[in-house]
Simulated scan of single mutants.
Amino acid sequence: MTTTPILVTGGTGTLGSHAVPLLRAAGRTVRVLSRRERLGADGIEYVTGDLMTGEGIDAALAGVGTVLHLAGGPKGDDEATRTLVRAARAAGVRHLVYISVIGADRVPLAWLRTKLDAERAIADSGIPWTTLRAAQFHDLTLTMIEKMTKLPVLPVPGGLRLQPVDSAEVAARLVELTLGEPAGLVPDMAGPEVHDIAELARPYRELRGARGRLRVPVRIPGKAGKAYRAGANLTLEGAEKGKRTWEEFLAERV
């Protein structure tokens, strides 16, 4: 077993819950950064720290050779990443792996700009790095569809298509990259199929035994809408494709 710990931020989230056990199965010592105190178990150490304030981050990075940065949210990812980069550089980290989003450099939305700024902070850090951009996870797509299908009518944003990908498959790819050599920006990872909102909602409603609902076309305004209609959130060629389909995910989850 390699004793130098890998620090995982966001290790208790959707991706982290898949990635941490895979790192342990590979024989690696894992240290998980959490904002709340947790008891260690099964060879996993939990350390407390806050990437927004920097509190506890230096201690969390002590002796760490590789960081898998999965922590993220609707805002503040750029600041949190810059805090991590400063501490990682001071700690002598030799590989920083980051999960970003397909379209971060093409879709003009504020939260995607923070992802792109985080990418740039890592690339400019002087630390050897690897960044993977992934499509929207099945889990998040399901949350969106559940909310939309509760409305009196089903809004169908014109031209919006998604390539939902399985979070467990993304986690497996990230672990592979984490255990490998720094590779810079690697090919995007997307799901095996492209769907519009109506196509995503149909199998969900069928599994729930719901009746058909009136669809209302909705136009996404502004530059973001133009980018989505142009498919800027998709990678149709050159992406690494997951195998688990949206329908397979729904059959297990719903």
Rank of each mutant, 00 (worst) to 15 (best):
T4M: 15
P5W: 04
P5S: 07
L7A: 09
V8C: 13
G10A: 14
G13N: 14
T14Q: 15
G16F: 12
H18M: 08
V20P: 08
V20N: 07
L23Q: 12
R24S: 10
A25K: 03
R28W: 07
R28M: 10
V30K: 10
V32S: 10
L33I: 09
S34R: 09
L39D: 15
A41Q: 10
E45Y: 06
T48I: 04
T48H: 05
T48Y: 02
L51V: 10
M52L: 09
G56K: 08
A60P: 09
G65F: 00
V67P: 05
G72T: 05
P74G: 04
G76V: 03
D78E: 01
T81G: 02
V85D: 01
V85W: 03
A87S: 02
A88I: 03
A91P: 01
V93Q: 03
R94I: 00
R94V: 02
L96I: 04
L96Q: 02
V97T: 06
Y98I: 03
I102G: 00
G103V: 10
R106L: 12
V107I: 11
R113L: 11
K115E: 09
E119V: 13
R120K: 13
I122W: 07
S125N: 11
P128R: 14
T130H: 14
Q136N: 05
D139P: 11
T141V: 00
T143H: 13
M144L: 15
E146G: 11
M148E: 12
L160F: 04
R161G: 00
P164L: 00
V165C: 10
V165P: 14
S167F: 13
A172C: 11
L177Q: 13
T178N: 14
L179C: 13
P182R: 15
P182S: 15
A183L: 13
M189A: 07
G191E: 01
H195I: 01
H195R: 02
H195Q: 02
I197V: 12
A198H: 01
R202P: 00
Y204M: 06
L207N: 06
G212D: 06
R213H: 07
R219M: 05
R219E: 04
I220R: 00
N233F: 13
L236K: 09
E240H: 15
R244Q: 08
